[in-house]
Amino acid sequence: EVHFESHGEEQAMRVVKMLKKRNLTVEVKVENNKWIITAK
Rank of each mutant, 00 (worst) to 15 (best):
K34S: 05
V28I: 12
K20A: 08
T25D: 08
R22I: 14
A39Y: 08
S6I: 15
E9F: 14
K34M: 11
L19M: 03
L24K: 03
I37W: 00
F4I: 10
Q11M: 11
S6E: 12
E9H: 11
E9P: 11
E27P: 00
E5I: 15
K34F: 10
I37L: 01
A12F: 07
Q11W: 12
L19V: 02
V15G: 01
H7I: 10
T38L: 05
V28A: 01
S6M: 15
H3M: 12
A39N: 01
V30Q: 09
H7E: 13
E27D: 09
N23P: 00
I36Q: 04
K17C: 15
E1Q: 08
H3L: 12
K20G: 10
L19R: 01
M18Y: 12
R22D: 07
E5P: 02
N33C: 11
V2W: 15
R14E: 08
N33W: 03
S6F: 15
V16G: 01
R22H: 14
K17S: 11
I36W: 04
M18R: 10
K20L: 14
E10L: 13
M13F: 04
K20R: 09
T25V: 12
K20Q: 13
K29H: 09
T38D: 04
E9I: 13
E10T: 07
V28P: 00
F4Q: 04
A12G: 02
L19I: 01
V26D: 00
T38G: 01
Q11L: 13
Q11D: 13
V26L: 04
V28G: 00
K40M: 11
R22F: 14
N23K: 10
F4G: 02
K29S: 08
E9M: 12
T38S: 07
I36M: 04
L24F: 14
E5W: 08
E31S: 05
E27Q: 08
R14V: 10
V30I: 12
E5G: 05
V2S: 06
S6C: 15
V15S: 01
V16S: 03
G8D: 15
K34I: 13
H7A: 11
V30F: 14
T25R: 10
W35P: 01
E31F: 07
A39R: 01
K17Q: 11
I37Y: 00
F4R: 05
K34W: 05
H7N: 10
H7L: 11
V16Y: 03
H7P: 09
Q11S: 09
K29V: 10
M18F: 08
K21H: 08
W35K: 00
K17M: 10
V26H: 00
I36V: 08
E1A: 11
A12N: 01
E5Y: 10
M18Q: 09
M13H: 05
M18W: 14
V2P: 02
K34H: 09
M18K: 08
G8H: 13
V26N: 00
N23H: 13
V15T: 06
N32Y: 04
G8Y: 15
S6N: 04
V28H: 00
I36P: 01
A39P: 01
V16M: 02
V16Q: 01
K34A: 04
R14N: 10
E1V: 13
R22K: 11
N23F: 15
K40H: 13
V28D: 00
E5D: 04
T25F: 12
R14T: 05
M13T: 04
I36A: 02
E1M: 12
N23S: 06
V26F: 07
L24V: 05
L19F: 04
E10P: 03
V16L: 04
V16R: 02
N32K: 08
K40E: 04
N33S: 05
N32V: 02
E5C: 14
K21C: 15
K21D: 14
V30S: 04
K21V: 09
V15E: 03
V2I: 13
K21T: 10
G8F: 14
I37D: 00
M18I: 13
V16A: 05
K21A: 13
E27M: 10
I37R: 00
L19Q: 03
V30W: 13
E10W: 12
N33A: 02
W35C: 07
K29F: 10
E10Q: 08
R22P: 02
I36T: 04
N33P: 02
I37Q: 00
V15D: 02
Q11E: 14
I36K: 01
K20N: 07
R14L: 10
E31Y: 06
Q11P: 05
K21E: 14
H3V: 14
K29A: 05
K20H: 06
E5L: 11
K40D: 03
V26A: 02
V28S: 00
E31T: 05
V26E: 00
I37M: 00
V28C: 07
R22Y: 14
T38N: 04
T38C: 12
V2Y: 14
V30P: 01
V15W: 11
K21L: 09
E31M: 08
R22V: 11
R14D: 07
V2A: 06
N33I: 03
V2H: 15
G8I: 14
F4E: 03
F4Y: 12
V16C: 15
V30M: 09
H7S: 11
N32E: 08
T25I: 14
V26S: 00
E31D: 06
S6T: 14
I36G: 01
R14F: 05
E9W: 15
M13P: 01
M18C: 15
L19Y: 02
E9Y: 15
F4P: 03
G8T: 15
I36D: 02
V30T: 05
N23L: 09
V2T: 07
E9K: 13
N33L: 05
T38R: 04
I37V: 10
K17G: 12
M13L: 07
M18E: 13
M13W: 06
V2N: 06
S6H: 05
V28T: 02
V16N: 02
V15R: 02
E1F: 13
H7M: 12
G8M: 13
K34L: 10
V16E: 04
V15K: 04
L24W: 14
G8E: 14
K21I: 09
R22A: 13
V2F: 14
K17T: 09
E31W: 06
E1H: 13
T38Y: 04
R22T: 08
R14H: 08
N32A: 06
A12Q: 01
K21W: 13
N23D: 08
V30G: 01
S6K: 09
E1T: 12
E1K: 09
T25L: 12
K34G: 03
K40G: 05
K40A: 09
E9A: 11
V2G: 05
M18P: 02
L19N: 03
W35Q: 01
V16K: 02
E1I: 13
M13A: 07
K34D: 03
Q11C: 15
A12E: 01
Q11I: 10
Q11N: 07
K40Y: 13
I37A: 00
R14S: 07
I37K: 00
N23V: 05
E31G: 04
V15N: 03
N33D: 12
R14W: 07
T38F: 05
A39K: 00
E10F: 05
A39F: 11
K29M: 08
A39T: 06
T25S: 10
E31L: 08
T25K: 10
E27G: 03
N32R: 02
E10A: 13
K20E: 15
L24T: 01
V26Y: 05
K34V: 12
V2C: 15
K29R: 13
W35A: 00
E5A: 06
V15P: 00
V15H: 03
V16I: 14
H7W: 15
L24D: 01
H3A: 07
A12M: 09
W35I: 07
E27R: 07
K34N: 07
I37N: 00
R14K: 09
K17V: 15
T38P: 00
E27L: 10
K40W: 14
K20Y: 04
N32Q: 05
K40L: 09
W35S: 00
M13V: 06
R22N: 09
E31A: 06
E10G: 05
K17L: 13
E27I: 11
L24S: 01
M18L: 11
M18A: 12
R14Y: 05
N32W: 04
T25N: 10
E27T: 13
E5R: 07
T25M: 11
S6D: 02
N23E: 07
L24A: 03
E5V: 14
E9Q: 09
E31C: 06
E5K: 05
A39M: 08
E9D: 03
E1L: 12
